[in-house]
Amino acid sequence: MHPLLRLVAQRLVLGAGTLLVVSALIFAGTEILPGDVAQAILGQTATPEAVAAIREDLGLDRPAWVRYLDWLAGFLRGDLGTSLANRVPISEMIAGRLENTLFLAGVAAAIAVPVAITLGVIAARFRETWLDKTISIVTLSAISMPEFFIGYILIFVFAVKLFWVPSIASVFPGMDFLDRLYAVSLPVATLSLVVIAHMMRMTRAAIVNVMASPYIETAELKGLTRSRITLHHALPNALSPIINVVVINLAYLVVGVVVVEVVFVYPGMGQLMVDAVAKRDVPVVQATGIIFAATYVLLNLTADVLAILANPRIRHAR
């Protein structure tokens, strides 16, 4: 087999394995950790009879691994279980919300990725000038701020003082695209700002790293133009680190979305998960947790595979 295919196949198998272990970990995290779920649901004052009843109801009297396999099998069939709090099938609760979260993260990514890479390349090109230093301080500050701080500043300025945009991002099914975009403008701005800052710093570092290679000196000593050196000699080699940076940050975006959804009371997966945690609605926590984790694992896997594909040493093996 071509070494490239073998490497990619290896990563895919490894990714599938990781997903399995992650699902087991999340299951174990909620089911086996000290503290009885039934007790947790009912509180310390519950009668033993009530606890026993709910244990039976949840199937907690069966061994943990049987329940795990059951849960996993159900998950694969699309049966995510039933919420403890309101007895609604979890797949129904998630349906519209997953879409909302993906919309929010997708729009933020569509803005953040091109902006961050452009800024990163500019900062690397004008390394150690005032422009680079300014960008550095600004992005350093941006990554230092909690998302909710940026979110409330934006609300305070653009929603409360200027009345430009709504402070609460309410969306509903059947809303048309532009209205939806307008509704999520502040959460998107918040997410993008944080992600751009992270991604830009990493892009700059990746390019600066490549620019220090001896083959760049070779190119300079050939009398090539600056743009040819950057585009033809540095960029192809910076590609796999940059792909890596982009995907790491997309994954971060999916997670960063949790806090932003709460700030803007946005009906997404993150909000759902936080509510479920507060209510100790374990099946919902498991289901949302595994969806978030799976997205993250898949994105990392994509990064791995793309980075392999972008590496000339692997593509053209001996």
Binding site: S213, P214, Y215, E217, T218, H232, P236
Partner: peptide, 14 residues
């Protein structure tokens, strides 16, 4: 110019 380490001085991507 001919560099000491050709292995590093050639661009691996081309």
């Amino acid at each position: 110019y001919v560099a000491q380490s050709a292995a590093a001085a050639f661009n691996p991507a081309h």
